[in-house]
Every structure is written in C-alpha cells, then in structure tokens.
Nucleic acid binder design. Structure first.
Lengths: 106, 106
DNA sequence: TTGACATGCAACCAAATGGTTGCATATTAA
DNA sequence: TTAATATGCAACCATTTGGTTGCATGTCAA
C-alpha cells in the first residue's frame, strides 16, 4: 500500500474510469466491468491488477466469478497526508506569487 | 489544466519530490532544483516541463535564470472534485465490504 | 458428463517514459 | 570583449506501459 503505487494507479484514465464504475456500482465482476471498457478483457484485468496492488480495489472470488470492491482508504490517505500539506500553503503561495509577478523588474 | 495532466504529473516520485522542494522553498531556479536531484539537469528540465504543463508549476524568467513557483490550485481541484466523491462513501463502503466478506458463503 | 462461460497466464508488440549526451544560445561578470 | 554561467533543444537509448492474441484452467448448468 505504498503511496507511490496509489499515485501510479491513479495516473491512468482507464483505471480512474474503473474506480468510477465501481463507485457507481460496487462489487462488479470482471465481465461486468469489461462491458463498459472499450478494450479486451485481458487489458482490463491488467488495469485491475494495478488497482489491486495499490490496494484501491479488493476482490472476492465467488464461484467462477470475481467481484471487485472499491477501497477508498488509500485515496483518503493521500488526501490527508499529501494534499493537505499543499493545501495549507495555498493562499499564501498565491499571494506571494502575485506579489512576485507584480514587482516584475530584474 | 486538464485533470489527466495533473494525475499524470503526480504519478512520478521525482516530480513529487520537485513539488516538495518548491513547497519548502518557493521560487528556486532550475540549477537550485537540480542540486537536490540525482540526475542530469536535462532530465530535471523535462520533469519540470511536465509539471508546468499540468499547471502545477509556474515559471518566471529573470535574466539568465528561471525561477519556479508552486501552484497548488490544481491539487486542490483534484481534492475537491475527485477525491471528495470517494470520501463521501468511505464509511459506508467499508462496512458494506465487511458485511459482504463475513457472509462469506456462495 | 459435457459444453458453455468466467477467469488466468504468457508471449508478443508499439508507443510512451525517463534518462542520457552533445551542442547551441543567452546573459552576466571580469 | 571574453569567459563563465544558466538554460534550451534535439537525437538517441533502455525500460516500462498499455494493449493485443492464443491457449489453459476452473466452475456452472443442461
């Protein structure tokens, strides 16, 4: 559940779409998820493996089907540990930048 | 300032390190930033270009130097528009998953 | 039991990525 | 003016990535 794996997993639009799909309807099987994607089942499998490695998706084998569940915890950890840091400095940074750009003479 | 560009930019650990560095000391020149990175100046330049394209970094040419400023706005937009969506369902999703895993019989 | 269905595994491929080296250009300082 | 410094640009390279096809395995249903 390294933070790097989460960032990498989120970098791909197809994978974010998969998370969106699971957010809309949790517990979908591989085949169900493939229905919405315009690529082969094997490609989707690979994307899901990346999401699983990042701990963003948990799977549950039920008979011959595999259900996929969204795990929002890593996303929240990123939000709290990483994004929060930049958020704090937001207004300051903006006003500093503005000032800097205004006294624009070398 | 597409969301995709921001996600892609954040995916690389070197680029996150650059953002961290700018967060610690804003307005650093290319050379200053290179000092902390274990790669050639040209490689750092490329990473900064990706960050600039995602609008995460703004540059300011001052004489023969180029200053780099962190722009936290896109990070906040991601936090608000995208992460917030998953955050809302967090507790529900967790408890649902738990229930599901518990009644673990096909 | 047997066929259909859901998934797993592996080899392969093109394109993108992250890095390098080499050289060009522009600005500052001696 | 000239030399050093800061950055820009481009070609090149290895590896990773995102996708494919082909085949194997496991499970359900008739």
């Amino acid at each position: 559940m390294s933070m790097d794996a989460v960032f990498r997993a989120l970098a791909d639009p197809t994978r974010r779409q998969l998370l969106d799909s699971l957010h809309a309807r949790n517990g979908q099987t591989l085949n169900a998820l493939c229905g919405e994607m315009d690529m082969t089942r094997q490609a989707v499998t690979k994307h899901l493996a990346v999401l699983e490695e990042a701990n963003l998706v948990t799977t549950l084998r039920r008979g011959r089907e595999k259900e996929h569940y969204l795990n929002p915890v890593p996303i929240n950890e990123i939000a709290e540990r990483w994004i929060g840091k930049f958020e704090r400095g937001r207004l300051d940074a903006l006003s500093n930048l503005k000032k800097r750009l205004e006294r624009e003479e070398p």
